[in-house]
């Protein structure tokens, strides 16, 4: 499941929803549930307090398409019982949640690996752009080479 929203998310509620099967009963095929939460930092480089707000822009339509594509790829690579990707857009402040990834599987290895895979791919292919605001003004965040390398690793495995 994927969702793009401006509002916050509640991790506990999202896990609870994921664990409920179509009938509403708690699923019993999940032995491992991994969550990753990305939050807004107030640092830029080494400077603390350099970021007072962050605005996330995205490409409506393509964003959902890309998130669904990487989720489908994760399910093809690992035996996953369920997955969820929630990404926020709009204006956020330091400490706010940005992104949530939940992966559930029978065993922890698949859940851990798939969560990492989803984040690595999301960071390099989902059309989101961050703009930071701070005492020095506004600036678009530059893409990181390390993120591209992290995503590329999965192509060789």
């Amino acid at each position: 499941m994927i969702r793009v929203q401006s509002g916050d998310f509640d991790i506990a509620k999202e896990i609870e929803a994921l664990r409920k099967g179509p009938t509403g009963d708690s699923r019993t095929d999940m032995g491992a549930i991994v969550t990753f939460t990305g939050t807004v930092r107030d640092t830029h480089g080494m400077t603390e307090g350099a970021v007072t707000a962050m605005t996330l822009e995205h490409y409506p339509g393509m964003t959902e398409k890309e998130l669904a594509r990487i989720e489908t790829e994760a399910h093809a690579r690992w035996p996953l019982a369920a997955t969820l990707i929630v990404h926020r857009v709009g204006r956020l402040e330091p400490g706010d949640n940005i992104v949530l990834v939940i992966t559930a599987s029978a065993h922890r290895e698949a859940a851990f690996e798939a969560a990492r895979f989803l984040m690595d791919y999301l960071k390099t292919s989902a059309p989101f752009w961050k703009r930071e605001s701070g005492p020095e003004g506004k600036r678009w965040v530059d893409a990181k080479k390390t993120d591209t390398e992290a995503a590329a690793r999965w192509r060789h495995e």
């Binding site: 996330l56 995205h58 989902a126 059309p127 961050k130």
Partner: peptide, 10 residues
Amino acid sequence: IAFFPPVTGG
């Protein structure tokens, strides 16, 4: 057709 900088979400 869309044009944009490298993505920076997540």
